[in-house]
Write a protein that binds this DNA or RNA. Structure first.
Lengths: 344, 344
DNA sequence: TTGTACGCGTTATCAT
DNA sequence: ATGATAACGCGTACAA
């Protein structure tokens, strides 16, 4: 199989390599006829420019990268779409890359920046446990998005952060449940031990209970299993089964993610409990499906579109030198739906 | 900001570049002490090898790429996970890349192969409308997965194909509904006009009706809107609303995707119709959530895990020259659950 | 075991 | 408008 290079094309056309390069890259200084001839040979021979070689030379890529932690999270799918659309508007290309749960996102970022000469990075998901020093190495602007609340350990002028305050919003949900008369609120939580959204949301739960002088009952806090998808419906289902079997009394279940809540509802229903008549159920995230199931799920919706748009805008502003790093917190929206109900 | 290259590291360590290279790439011919010293300086200076330069030199990457069309499809998330796991077992790395709906997957494949010197490609989703000629340019083995049924227009020894026969499985679902006594089966279909799974599944519907001598009522076939996500719950919801408003009589709704079916159920419920007492609903795909909603959804489950595993295995076998291209068809599994019911 | 030098395919600079 | 040529950063053949 013959893989033509730019040299081959040049030779075939009887021109220099730079002319071919100009044809490919839409440079102005080129005779339209020459260009057309070159483009035709390119098509004829199926020439595909080697991106590695291009990136090697290129200084400036007019591109950004989006680094997503946890590809399976449907929550990100929407954000990515919006980000992509916004990038297109600015004539930037977007490199999407996903990182393993156990991979260091800053290391990954370091790599792609070097490889592709990007102008900026958006981190979706993941944690904040990065040293100032490492972050400094990343000498392109970057924005963390949907990252819970702002950690105190790194200097704020190193990076931007956009997201909702998970602790606060979580407390708001529990406030709401308490307002409905619930006091025995069971908690289904994932990844509470790590520095993650799970922990923040659990803290919000504690915070709200304390604020209302309701004693915390540790027997009502159930951790999901580590063996299967942490935020999966299956995990919500199994964990809620355990809760039911524990015999502990409860009038509401609050799960730190909609997927978990959906599993929880199923588990309750199968045990003969009605939702919301016997038990109220609340979730967090506001994923699409939460509004289509029956009963539809009361949850906290994050303003995904708005956040995504602002993330891109902010990043471009920083790239253009128009702005400094910022830390923006959005309010979540409490979506009161069918799965929660006032009690006696 | 100083970005050290391999030369800088070599100079700092007082060694040649090749020694540094050997240290990085775990080559055997190197003094352990030298290696340690080099690795330390690398860490100290935060040296990150430039991947573009590496790829440019590299002939053989021990890596494959997975090209996914439609990142938002939760159906693929599972497959990708399995593929990744299998790749790790073989000590291959996996490059995940997503393609726009309107992008040509073969062109995209051509690019990544050149850029990364990959050994093989797995296509997830997407269509088959590619010319033999173009496919031939892709001189690494590739496997199409979950691609519906096999098209006749390209030579089968050019590529492999793994998937379920969407037309047949779709017919099976309709057979089942008819077996329950349903004759007025409404259809919610997406992308029926293109050469896609939507069309195949619709054909299966026609096939089954004809086989049972039931007249096809075009007024019961509803196309989803093109304006919003083709396979989204919202689209299923809105389309079913239209169906209900049309006044056409029906006892069952068959949607060509679970997401659509979930939207359909919601629409029916909101209109005061009970599922399955008044209307049976069936989906297709077997995504996780279909088993957790109430009523749980009768659907066709594709053997995702098995297919993903076999896809990887087959690709590796072809790479190793152990096998020729193959075309494997899996049987779907009819998951009879709560959303369908026998009628008088 | 280690170092030198060349080339991978492209773009940018400079000359023409 | 076009062509020759020097980088880009790395791996590797070959020499030492």
């Amino acid at each position: 199989m013959f893989e033509p290079t730019i040299k081959d094309i040049a030779k075939i056309c009887g021109v220099g390599v730079s002319t071919v390069s100009r044809a490919i890259n839409n440079h102005p200084d080129i005779n339209p006829e020459t260009k057309e001839k070159i483009m035709n040979t390119i098509k004829e021979y199926g020439y595909v420019p080697n991106n590695s070689a291009r990136n090697l030379k290129r200084v400036d890529a007019k591109a950004i990268a989006v680094l997503v932690k946890g590809i399976s999270n449907p929550f990100f799918a929407n954000m990515i779409k919006v980000i992509e659309k916004e990038c297109k508007k600015k004539h930037y290309s977007m490199e999407l890359s996903h990182i393993e749960t156990d991979e260091d996102e800053v290391d990954a970022a370091l790599k792609v920046v070097k490889e592709k000469r990007l102008r900026g990075i958006i981190f979706l998901g993941g944690l904040f446990s990065h040293s100032d020093e490492k972050l400094r190495k990343l000498n392109v602007p970057f924005v963390f998005s949907t990252a819970g609340s702002i950690p105190e350990n790194i200097s704020k002028n190193q990076y931007s952060n956009i997201g909702v305050d998970d602790r606060k919003e979580s407390a708001r949900m529990v406030d709401y449940l308490i307002g409905l008369g619930h006091e025995k609120i069971a908690m289904v939580v994932a990844e509470a031990d790590e520095e993650s959204i799970g922990k923040l949301r659990l803290e919000g739960y504690f915070e709200s209970l304390q604020a209302h002088n309701i004693a915390i009952n540790p027997k009502l806090v159930f951790q999901t299993s580590d063996d299967i998808g942490h935020f999966s419906m299956e995990n919500g289902y199994l964990t809620t089964k355990k809760l039911i079997e524990s015999g502990e009394e409860f009038t509401a279940v609050y799960a730190v993610a909609d997927a978990l809540a959906i599993g929880a509802i199923r588990a309750l229903l199968e045990s003969g409990l009605r939702v919301p008549e016997d038990v109220s159920v609340a979730g967090y995230d506001g994923i699409d499906v939460s509004g289509y199931i029956s009963p539809s799920l009361t949850t906290i919706r994050q303003p995904v579109e708005e956040m995504a748009k602002d993330t891109v805008k902010l990043l471009f502003d920083i790239i253009a030198g128009k702005k400094d790093h910022q830390h923006i917190t959005y309010d979540g929206e409490l979506l009161v739906r069918e799965s929660t109900k006032e009690i006696g």
